[in-house]
Design a protein around this nucleic acid. Structure first.
Lengths: 209, 209
DNA sequence: CACTGTAGTAATCGACTGATAACATGTCAA
DNA sequence: TTGACATGTTATCAGTCGATTACTACAGTG
């Protein structure tokens, strides 16, 4: 009704049986893509199921509820960010910000990862989900301060830019690149090193994902 | 089901009849609060109606569809931000950033205004809504560049901080102020001048709004 | 081969929600 | 006053969605 449902149908055609552990991971990957494209409430468990190539009741049974599934999705997303940061940390302090920034935009290759992070930051009002989202953000902040050696002010700037990236991604500004002044300028002048990655991996405005 | 519905029941007890124009504005105010608290898809037209003190069908009839209502809400929100920026612009260049920043956080007094802006930046995937959201963001950017005299780099930093504010608001980090390290640090060290306003007007993590 | 636990589906239900239709009430001009 | 339009409601529907139930099929073990 509100969303022009585009059911993509089993992206990774799932063969016969699979171990529950593998199936869980596969569903989490699919769910990340769908939740990232349609937000938490806008996503149906059926869409997740079809994206993963399984039946809708099976998704529910594996994760209990849609909420629990979403919580696992954002926890996994924050874990991936943290892991990417950790791997990008070693190196000269001068380029530390660029390295971590590149590690963040590098996550664009994992469909829905960044949109899910961005979307989770708007869900502080939900009791359980809000708790997990705050904890996820906090874990990144503490990493930057404790392990990364960022000062409070450096951390502020770093995270601020990260949130701007989230916005660019969320708004699908990349679709207007080259045709609209603001979009072109934001991307071209402000994220010169990321623009290629962003443009390559991001859905355009007219695509559901 | 997913959201612990807390129907606030007619905040501004609407007396008898009202001109359609006033009623529209009243509903837009209420809708801003509800959409801001529960996101677009998470909000029902019935909640908006009860918050405004009218019946659900009347909301639908006045605005056509829920989507059109939401579009008016975010357009109005971006208009308010632009207006606040415009009023805060005159003055010395040195404090320009602080003035505009204060104008932005000052919008916290209008319930849902900032969350609605923040939420709209995640809806680039929706055809109509995405168009309006991109146009809204673009209007702010062009204001900063053309009327505000910001360089591209200054604009980037300014908007990045704004998006970080959105995140703080969306995550309800203010609820953890004083009890959690990250929340306290982000608010205390990074937004020293805004922390009072934020803490005064923002819903806590356990409140729906 | 039989047994058993795990992977998976089809069918279906109850609650919710946006929208519509039909009806009611107030207000103002002539 | 009366008609006519604008303001507003109650009742209700049709579609959607998360969840439950009951069933099926496969794989490994003894």
């Amino acid at each position: 009704m509100t969303v022009e449902a585009a059911a993509p149908a089993a992206q990774n055609a799932a063969p016969g049986r699979m171990s529950a552990v593998d199936r869980r991971e596969q569903i989490l990957v699919a769910a990340t893509a769908v939740f990232g494209a349609k937000t938490y409430v806008g996503t149906t468990t059926d869409e997740v199921a079809r994206a993963a190539g399984v039946s809708q009741p099976y998704v529910v049974r594996l994760f209990g509820t849609k909420e629990k599934l979403y919580i696992e999705v954002i926890q996994r997303a924050y874990d991936h960010v943290l892991e990417a940061f950790r791997q990008a940390l070693p190196g000269p302090v001068e380029t530390r910000g660029e390295r971590l920034g590149a590690a963040y935009t590098g996550l664009l290759v994992e469909r829905g990862m960044l949109p899910v992070i961005a979307g989770s930051t708007a869900m502080g009002g939900e009791a359980e989900i809000g708790r997990v989202a705050r904890e996820g953000f906090s874990s990144l902040w503490r990493f930057a301060r404790d392990e990364g050696g960022f000062s409070a002010d450096e951390a502020r700037t770093f995270f601020a830019i990260g949130m701007l990236i989230n916005t660019v991604v969320g708004l699908r500004l990349t679709g207007d690149y080259g045709t609209e002044v603001t979009a072109t300028e934001v991307l071209d002048e402000c994220f010169p090193d990321a623009v290629e990655k962003v443009r390559a991996f991001l859905p355009r405005a007219d695509e559901p994902w």
